[in-house]
Design a protein around this nucleic acid. Structure first.
Length: 218
DNA sequence: CCATTAATAGGCG
DNA sequence: CGCCTATTAATGG
């Protein structure tokens, strides 16, 4: 393990979309119930079933993927986490064990807080509850949309739709894939081979240009 | 270097 | 399309 960066809990929480517009006094309240910064080396599991960890986490630095495992041992990628993203909000409301895995895809630092502490704070802080609901809703829409695409669009269309999402999010015509292509394939509900082939097709149709993880949308 | 993992290609159902 | 296998590229130690 390398150096330990000095940790500012307030700065960490303030990066989160969910918290960053909160008045400082509220953020300081959150700090009082949050853990110290935790380090996870690339490839390690931040969360897994039956690890006994509840509550939510905030990405301070790094990237991670969320996935589930079926009985054949194959993983299905459910989403990604980037700096400032928060995850595990559902565990703030119920104390069941989660069935998903969260794995660091780069060296990662996170902050977290437990369900109990968070619930107590929520009761004293309605404004916080409102923001949480809004964020929760946005996530729901994204998940729903991916589900809709899986059922209504063929592989090529799904890939293009995803690239356009990325383009919008990254505000560029040249997008950078945040996942390995095999993980992206899993997220889109297709195989890596199909992804590879369809990217080629799209390229031949002059709709995109692929250079490794950089893709230009034409 | 070697070993492992990721990406691509081709065949087939 | 997915699944399987072979080949190649990229990655890590």
């Amino acid at each position: 393990m390398t150096k330990m960066t000095k940790h500012s809990p307030l700065a960490c929480l303030s990066k989160a979309e969910l918290f960053k517009d909160l008045p400082k006094n509220l953020r300081e309240k959150l700090v009082t119930i949050s853990t110290h910064q935790e380090y996870f080396p690339k490839g390690s599991l931040i969360r897994q079933p039956f690890d006994g960890k509840d509550g939510m986490l905030v990405m301070d630095k790094g990237h991670a993927k969320i996935y589930s495992l079926n009985e054949d041992g194959k993983e299905t990628v459910l989403g990604t986490l980037n700096k400032g993203d928060s995850e595990g909000q559902e565990h703030l409301f119920s104390d069941g064990n989660q069935e998903n895995y969260i794995q660091a895809t780069t060296d990662t630092w996170i902050c977290s807080m437990t369900r109990k502490d968070f619930q107590n704070l929520l009761q004293e802080t309605p404004g916080l509850a409102l923001r949480l609901l809004n964020s929760f809703g946005k996530k729901l829409v994204a998940v729903e949309q991916n589900a809709i695409r899986r059922n209504s669009m063929d592989a090529k269309e799904r890939i293009m739709a995803h690239l356009e999402d990325l383009s919008k999010k990254q505000e560029a015509n040249v997008v950078t894939l945040e996942l390995k292509k095999k993980d992206l394939a899993s997220l889109l509900g297709i195989t890596p081979e199909t992804l590879s082939r369809k990217l080629k097709e799209l390229e031949n149709e002059n709709r995109i240009e692929v250079k490794g993880k950089q893709i230009r949308i034409l």
